[in-house]
Design a binder for these strands. Structure first.
Lengths: 234, 234
DNA sequence: ACCGACAGGTGTACGCCGTACACTTCCGCG
DNA sequence: CGCGGAAGTGTACGGCGTACACCTGTCGGT
């Protein structure tokens, strides 16, 4: 009977969905790098090879994790102009990504889109088309958005944790200013605005919206002008 | 004496630079995933641990590889307007990245910028400043460029190799059209333009330049308007 | 001429990883 | 009752990064 208790553990028999959700949770809590088949199995109270009954391999696991995050993006809002509709949708994607900081890196790393991902992209394309964009222009603006449709962009200056010691911090900043005056200048301007200090001083959200709106406004102008790819060939 | 010949192999005693160049070459030829300390050592006719006399660890190796690629970007052209100057520089970065297809993924993956990377970014920032951009606006446009300063953007629809069998290819395309009509539409428009077929039909270079010019023109407008971050707070 | 330091290269070993493959266990259905 | 299949197990293999102790050849100081 001890045996029965052990093996049994009537553990809700572990389907694909539970595996994926556990993986997402693990990544959220301890970082995506610690998501190994072995760690994940342990988290689920199971032997590593058991996972392979539910996901084909580790790549498929990552695909599934992406699908869960993409599933958290709000559906399109109806009955409004294309611009605010797309803006809202992308900012919703951004919120989903911010809840799962590992997700942007994983999305980038996928060699092929999953069906869920294609669904999302298809619907965004559809929003431009519904707004009257030509097929041609839609194609180009999707490329121009790039990873911004997911709500993120590559950080140029990755947030370094900054040494706690303020003296060391000051020294580091002096060196930055000496060697890279232009970078120092722009990071300082951001810091000054928020009373914070270089690095985390920068409000990523407003930077994101700045660039997004710049692009959307640009799209708008081209659309109104009746832009076509032929009209612009050099 | 056989011993002397063996151990000697007067192999040009293997400095950091030779290690990095060999790593770049290996990545170019066989893909970045095959760049392991063991493979690289073998390529250099040396035992794996020998590499650690020249690079601190594998992360440092990747950093060094990025530095080599960034070193291939042309220096700024002088005596011209900021817009064509920056445009040329970024397109030069793009050319460097296209020579080393693994580089964009590696750049994205670096948790901290190297000194060489900071040099490049600093000089791009300097080009905006020299063009009369305010510190504030420069800060924002650098964020808006994102990974585009490196000459790449996240591919939304990764180039899948496409099955050679045209019949299977047609079937795949029918399914795409059924399930994701909007995506099918825009990929087909690209394909049609070039007489090619979905996927590789899309001219990435012109897409890149489209988005780059859209952004640069947007920057120009804001600059002329005397844009400041305060003027746009909601 | 020696000797010690030291930089460059070696060999062994450890703990992690993904996963192939053969196996047990157990549940539901005929 | 028995059996097929799904879920879970155990063992094993090859690859990885790299810690650590060791060897070896070179060179400057005496």
């Amino acid at each position: 009977m001890a045996q029965q208790q052990m093996n049994a553990a009537r553990r809700a028999p572990l389907n694909r969905d539970r595996v994926l959700r556990a993986a997402v949770e693990l990544a959220d809590h301890t970082g995506v790098d610690s998501v190994s088949m072995r760690n994940l199995a342990q988290e689920l109270g199971v032997v590593p090879m058991a996972l392979y009954k539910h996901v084909a391999n580790k790549e498929a696991l990552f695909d599934g994790m992406v699908d869960i995050v993409v599933g958290e993006i709000d559906p399109p809002v109806g009955g409004t102009e294309w611009k605010p509709a797309i803006r809202q949708r992308i900012l919703s994607a951004r919120r989903a990504l911010l809840r799962h900081p590992w997700a942007s890196r994983v999305i980038e790393s996928r060699p092929r889109p999953t069906l869920v991902v294609l669904d999302y992209l298809n619907s965004v394309v559809g929003m431009f088309r519904a707004g009257g964009f030509s097929v041609d222009l839609t194609h180009h603006v999707m490329h121009a958005l790039g990873s911004r449709v997911w709500g993120f962009t590559q950080e140029l200056f990755p947030a370094s944790p900054l040494p706690a010691d303020p003296q060391l911090q000051a020294a580091m900043f002096r060196e930055l200013a000496g060697r890279y005056p232009h970078i120092a200048e722009i990071t300082m301007s951001a810091a000054h605005d928020e009373g914070s200090v270089v690095g985390q001083g920068c409000d990523d959200q407003s930077e994101f919206e700045f660039a997004l709106d710049l692009l959307l406004d640009g799209f708008d102008t081209l659309h109104r002008q009746g832009w076509t790819s032929r009209s612009n060939q050099s």
